[in-house]
């Protein structure tokens, strides 16, 4: 049997060059590709889908078409065991947004369903890990998934009179002049603004109110480490 090197030299191609020329034509992992082209737990807008939506125990929606990503989750929950039994979704967005939501819907329903308390702890990184990684500039797509999940779970708490369990997304105002919150900075970091200059371009934070800059820089460092390690 001839070795790969022999084959390559016969073809008169340098090994390094060959590897580059034959690099695959797909940008994401095979898992992302699979979930993008074959989304699991999709809610189809037909009679059956309408029925499902009516009978769902919770609905959560985040994002908007204007920001480029929007997604909607439907949950069926077993009250007695406090577990998610079924989940369906729809996503407007890019391949990683569609694949992330599809994977999320699998994660919360596999192995007889996920405990609600565990679902609330689900982090974007958990979804990304199951997808076999995403390009860092696509991380924000998976953030929407866990946000939609928390919004749906809160909807369930509201509908089932468990108001004490509702988790309000805490946002702390960092710059009162521009009303910029820590959440805004988190979003901006996820969108790739990794230094003060880029953050200011996006959020105008601390431009006239320079006293808040150290706090902003601290948050940039924090979220950079959180998401990009």
């Amino acid at each position: 049997m001839e070795t790969e090197i022999q084959t390559q030299s016969k073809l008169n191609i340098h090994p390094d060059v060959k590897a580059k020329v034959e690099s695959k034509k797909w940008f994401y992992t095979d898992t992302v590709k699979d979930h993008f082209f074959n989304p699991r737990n999709l809610l189809i807008n037909d009679e059956e889908g309408e029925q499902y939506s009516k009978n769902a125990d919770a609905i959560g929606m985040v994002g908007s078409p204007a920001c480029g990503d929007a997604l909607k989750l439907w949950l069926k929950i077993d009250k007695n065991i406090d577990k998610i039994m079924d989940c369906k979704f729809q996503t407007f967005g890019c391949a990683s947004a569609i694949a992330s939501t599809s994977m999320l819907s699998v994660m919360v329903t596999e192995n007889d369903g996920m405990k609600i308390d565990d679902a609330l702890k689900l982090k974007p990184q958990d979804i990304i890990a199951r997808l076999g990684n995403l390009p860092s500039r696509k991380f924000h797509c998976s953030v929407l998934g866990d946000k939609a999940l928390r919004s749906a779970i809160n909807d369930y708490f509201r509908r089932s009179n468990q108001n004490n369990r509702i988790v309000v997304e805490g946002a702390r105002i960092i710059d009162p002049e521009t009303k910029t919150t820590d959440k805004d900075i988190e979003e901006a970091v996820l969108e790739g603004a990794l230094n003060l200059e880029d953050i200011q371009k996006k959020l105008k934070v601390g431009i006239s109110n320079k006293a808040v800059i150290p706090a902003v820089e601290e948050l940039i460092r924090f979220y950079k480490e959180k998401y990009f390690g």
Partner: peptide, 8 residues
């Protein structure tokens, strides 16, 4: 469009 929840 089947995957999308949006209807502009």
């Amino acid at each position: 469009r089947q995957i999308s929840p949006v209807n502009v």
